[in-house]
Design a protein around this nucleic acid. Structure first.
Lengths: 119, 119
DNA sequence: TTCGTTGTTCGTGAAACATCGAACAAGGTA
DNA sequence: TACCTTGTTCGATGTTTCACGAACAACGAA
C-alpha cells in the first residue's frame, strides 16, 4: 500500500548488532535462506507457519536491518537478499551464516510455494 | 558462586540462532572482542559501564550460547573464548564477526583493566 | 462503483531481555 | 573466628520482541 515505503538502510547505516539481532530468529533465518539463491521472491510465495501480520513483521525486521530489499509492483511486493551490499559491508558474514544454517537446516519450516517440502 | 557450575554446551548443542542472539548486544560483542586474542581473562579485569550483576548476566549468555568457557579458581573465575570449537561448529562465522566488530569498533566501551583506553 | 486481493498498521497480550540494587555463598585473609 | 573479596542469584522494573486478529489503504478486476 506504499503507505510508507520501507526505509532501506545504506550499507554504512547497517550495524553488526542489528544484523545479528535480525538473524537470531529461526523464521528470519529461513527467509534469508530462501532468498539466498539470489532470486527475487513474491510476498505471496512465502510460506511460514505464522499469521501474515507476523510475517510482515519479520520481513520488516530483515529490511530495517539491511538484509533484504523490498520492491512494490502494483499491489504486490517482492523481496530479495542484499547479498552484494552485505558482502561489502560485512565480508564473509552472510556466507558463514548461510552455511551454518544449511548444515543445521535452520528455518526449514519456511518454504516457497511450489517448492517440494523438505521431507 | 560455584553454586551452579555453568553449563558449557558441547559443539553439537550450540545453535546458530542462539549464537546470533548472543552477539546481538554491543556489550557482549565487546567482551568477545577482548577475548579474541586467545588470552584467558580474569573476571575482575573486565571493565564495562554496567553493574556487576549485569556483567555477570552477559557472561552467562555468552557461556550458555557456547561462545566462552569459564573456569573457577578459588574465589575468582576466568573466561576465554572457545575459538576452536566455534570455528569447527560454524566455520568462518566468528572471524567474520570479529572483523566486522573491529571495523566498526563495536563494544568499544568494554575494556580490560590496565589496557590503554581507546582515544 | 463495487468487490476482491495484497500487504501494512494498530491494539493487545505474553514472553524475553537488560538493568539495577540487595542478598547470598564460597574462599581467602587477618 | 571474624572479615573481606568475588561473583552469582534474586526480585523488581522498564523496554523490546513475537504473535495474533481486526481494520485499513492501494490497486486491479468485474
Amino acid at each position: 500500500m506504499i503507505v510508507k515505503q520501507a526505509s532501506h538502510p545504506s550499507p554504512e547505516e547497517m550495524t553488526l548488532v542489528t544484523v545479528m539481532g535480525a538473524l537470531s530468529d529461526p523464521i528470519r533465518v529461513g527467509l534469508v535462506r530462501i532468498l539466498a539463491d539470489g532470486r527475487e521472491r513474491g510476498w505471496g510465495e512465502l510460506r511460514a507457519p505464522i499469521a501474515k501480520s507476523t510475517l510482515s513483521h519479520h520481513l520488516r525486521v530483515l529490511r530495517d536491518a539491511g538484509l533484504t530489499r523490498t520492491r512494490q509492483e502494483g499491489t504486490r511486493c517482492f523481496v530479495e537478499l542484499r547479498h552484494h551490499d552485505l558482502n561489502a559491508r560485512f565480508p564473509g558474514l552472510l556466507d558463514a551464516v548461510l552455511e551454518a544454517a544449511h548444515n543445521d537446516d535452520v528455518g526449514a519450516h519456511v518454504t516457497v510455494a511450489g517448492d517440494p517440502q523438505p521431507t
